[in-house]
Amino acid sequence: MTQGLTYQQFSDNPQVLRATLYSIAVIGEAISSVINDLEALDSSIPWFQIRGLRNRVIHEYFQVDSEVIWETLHSDLPILKKSLTDILESYPSA
């Protein structure tokens, strides 16, 4: 949803911002359910910080800084995606 948007377009669009925050919450929730396993597989990723961002998005919704979310989308999410892809590729297909 954010591809091709500038920060200003992102922060000025409440629908995109809500959808992004929901997606971050879903990612954090999924990680929470397997955090111990993930940490054992790749300890270089800040799994507890990812879960913490989920908690902030859910419990402090009106205090979320859209600049932090924007930075997370562009800096942290690609790294997380690559790490999760690497983890998945290291397992033989079922």
Score class of each variant (00 low, 15 high):
32 S>K: 10
61 Y>G: 05
60 E>G: 00
40 A>I: 08
57 V>R: 02
39 E>H: 15
60 E>A: 11
44 S>F: 04
34 V>E: 06
51 R>T: 01
36 N>W: 02
47 W>R: 07
34 V>D: 04
61 Y>L: 06
32 S>L: 09
54 R>D: 09
31 I>H: 07
53 L>N: 13
57 V>K: 05
45 I>Q: 10
42 D>A: 12
56 R>L: 10
46 P>E: 07
46 P>T: 05
56 R>Q: 13
60 E>H: 15
49 Q>R: 07
32 S>I: 03
54 R>K: 15
34 V>N: 05
38 L>R: 13
45 I>W: 03
42 D>G: 10
58 I>H: 00
41 L>T: 06
51 R>G: 00
53 L>V: 14
47 W>M: 02
57 V>I: 15
55 N>E: 02
31 I>N: 02
50 I>Q: 07
47 W>G: 04
52 G>E: 04
43 S>D: 13
45 I>V: 15
35 I>Q: 11
41 L>W: 06
49 Q>V: 04
52 G>Q: 07
57 V>G: 01
33 S>T: 14
43 S>I: 08
45 I>D: 01
42 D>T: 04
46 P>D: 06
57 V>H: 10
35 I>A: 08
39 E>C: 12
34 V>T: 08
52 G>I: 00
54 R>C: 06
61 Y>C: 07
38 L>V: 05
41 L>N: 09
34 V>A: 07
61 Y>H: 15
32 S>F: 09
39 E>W: 11
33 S>N: 13
36 N>M: 09
43 S>A: 15
35 I>H: 12
56 R>V: 15
59 H>A: 06
47 W>H: 05
55 N>Q: 03
39 E>N: 14
55 N>W: 09
49 Q>C: 00
55 N>I: 02
44 S>A: 12
44 S>N: 15
51 R>C: 03
38 L>M: 11
33 S>F: 10
60 E>K: 15
59 H>N: 11
